[in-house]
């Protein structure tokens, strides 16, 4: 069981790095914003494994919720497309 949890954490870390690379590489700004919000969501699960429930709560509410909304509003207001 503990081994399974460790493999799951490894999977989450690889997922985080892949999402970060995707957010940097993609041309579509909205996809990049959603990917960076997803990184925060995965990070909150990792914090839970690292025995930090307080930080996991904050990260889930702020990183995945409010930051993503603020980015989306900015992309919408600037009609952004990366050249």
């Amino acid at each position: 069981m503990a081994e399974l949890l460790q493999y799951f954490m490894l999977f989450l870390i690889v997922l985080m790095l892949a999402l970060a690379l995707f957010a940097v590489k993609t041309k579509d700004l909205l996809s990049a914003v959603i990917a960076s919000g997803f990184i925060s969501l995965v990070a909150s699960i990792v914090y839970l494994y690292l025995q930090a429930p307080d930080v996991a709560m904050t990260e889930a509410a702020i990183g995945a919720g409010i930051t993503t909304l603020i980015f989306v509003i900015t992309v919408r207001k600037t009609k952004g497309k990366e050249k």
């Binding site: 957010a23 940097v24 990049a32 960076s36 990184i39 990070a43 952004g80 990366e82 050249k83």
Partner: peptide, 17 residues
């Protein structure tokens, strides 16, 4: 792109935390 730069900064923030 300015928004891309700020996305990079926020990824860095997560990494430091």
């Amino acid at each position: 792109n300015l928004i891309k730069i700020i996305i990079g900064l926020s990824i860095m923030d997560t990494g430091v935390n």
